[in-house]
Amino acid sequence: MHALIIDDSRAMRLILRRILAGLGFGATEAANGREALDLLEVGLHPDLCLVDWNMPVMDGYDFVSEVRKVREWRDITLMMVTTESEHAQIVKALAAGAHEYVIKPFTAEAIADKLELLGLVQDGALA
């Protein structure tokens, strides 16, 4: 399994990369939505994108909307990982095509639970 981690914070990308490694994922990183789209356009095809919302150049919401327009990318699972925590924002992200939503702060178990819900890791990958 391979994930694309999209967050403007290097510290956050590192935290997510470590958690994903524990779940058997390899990872590529992008610092904003535009960088991530560029990676997809040159042929990177991850199983999962973890997407921050507030980023410079292109935010996560626009990234999700762009990805959802492209037929060949429909099998990519999109999970928002963001500090945006209002009810309305979650509704908006899901409507744009995000499959799941994790609010920062999160624990390793929270990421594992969500990936289990999405069928990307086995049941009980974590205790």
Binding site: E86, I90, A98, E100, Y101, E109
Partner: peptide
């Protein structure tokens, strides 16, 4: 709390069954 909400609750259920 936020940390508890993240644990295994599908986002669709959060939106449907919880308010801030």
């Amino acid at each position: 709390g936020q940390v508890e909400m993240n644990r295994g609750l599908p986002a669709t259920s959060l939106v449907k069954y919880f308010t801030r």
